[in-house]
């Protein structure tokens, strides 16, 4: 097809728009000067300051724990939900189930955060749990959000899967649970990895919901970053952002290469 100069320049502009702020962040993180427009020479001092910032380190550790726990829970729940939606056909309450699973995708975070907090407050009043807010409340809230995304990823893979494999195993007398673990899971494994990573990233990135459901003793990394950024530009955040960008870029490129070699085989 004919290449359109207009379309290509739009594409170039779009990528520039998407990547310029990220590139600048990386440059600023090595700037010895605090002021963005003045190049004070190359320096790694903000990275060293970051490693000595105990608040950031503690928050990062909590965020990683929350993200890993909630992504795992979200993946299990999301896979069950995907199996229900793709393989179960009609059942009572399917419409409601369908609505509930997709709604968190489009619900503004601020409403989700408020709703979760009000639930925890009401629960605490009624049954005395959760006692204050912290790790477990953030995990529950993030699991609900992550589950919706994990379901989308897993269900699309499950829907493409050839059902005759499962049918053959069932006909040969395997129990459904065995069929699921021996046949279904290996086939949908890439989507499980993608779903987990998506839920993990969303949890690691969330500031709005976490602000509602975290307590005084449990500050996640985005909350910490948010409160320091509100006060103005902070070079340590540039360094942190650069680290995140590098980690994500490496992970994505590796995942992409892996999926490419799989396809070639």
């Amino acid at each position: 097809m004919r290449r359109s100069v207009f379309l290509l320049s739009c594409l170039g502009f779009g990528y520039a728009f998407l990547y310029l702020p990220i590139a600048l962040l990386v440059v600023w993180s090595f700037n010895a000067s605090r002021i963005v427009n003045i190049w004070g020479g190359f320096s790694t001092k903000w990275y060293w300051e970051l490693t000595r910032n105990d608040d950031f380190l503690a928050a990062a550790w909590l965020s990683l724990k929350v993200a890993a726990t909630s992504a795992t829970a979200a993946l299990v729940l999301g896979t069950l939900a995907a199996v229900v939606l793709v393989r179960f056909g009609r059942f009572h309450g399917r419409l409601l189930f369908n609505g509930l699973i997709a709604a968190p995708l489009v619900m503004p975070e601020i409403i989700l955060g408020l709703a979760m907090l009000l639930l925890f407050v009401a629960l605490e009043q009624a049954i005395g749990w959760p006692d204050g807010r912290g790790f477990s409340t953030i995990v529950i809230a993030h699991t609900t959000v992550g589950m919706a995304y994990a379901t989308v990823v897993v269900r699309s893979r499950l829907a493409q899967m050839d059902e005759s494999l499962e049918e053959a195993a069932l006909d040969l007398g395997a129990r459904p649970i065995k069929v699921f673990f021996v046949i279904t899971l290996p086939v949908i494994a890439p989507s499980l990895a993608a779903g987990w990573l998506l839920a993990f990233t969303l949890s690691l990135d969330d500031v709005v919901v976490a602000q509602f459901v975290s307590g005084p003793g449990a500050t996640t990394l985005p909350i910490e970053v948010f409160s320091s950024v509100r006060l103005g530009v902070s070079p340590q955040v540039n360094a942190l952002g650069t680290i995140i960008v590098c980690v994500v870029a490496v992970l994505i490129v590796v995942a992409w290469r892996l999926s490419m070699t799989r396809k070639e085989r």
Binding site: L25, V229, V233, G241, I244, V245, V248, I252
Partner: peptide
């Protein structure tokens, strides 16, 4: 790719711009 990096930090980069 940008979607996978921290949303908060990307918004913050705009403050500097």
């Amino acid at each position: 790719l940008p979607f996978w990096t921290s949303f908060l930090i990307r918004v913050y980069a705009w403050m500097g711009i």
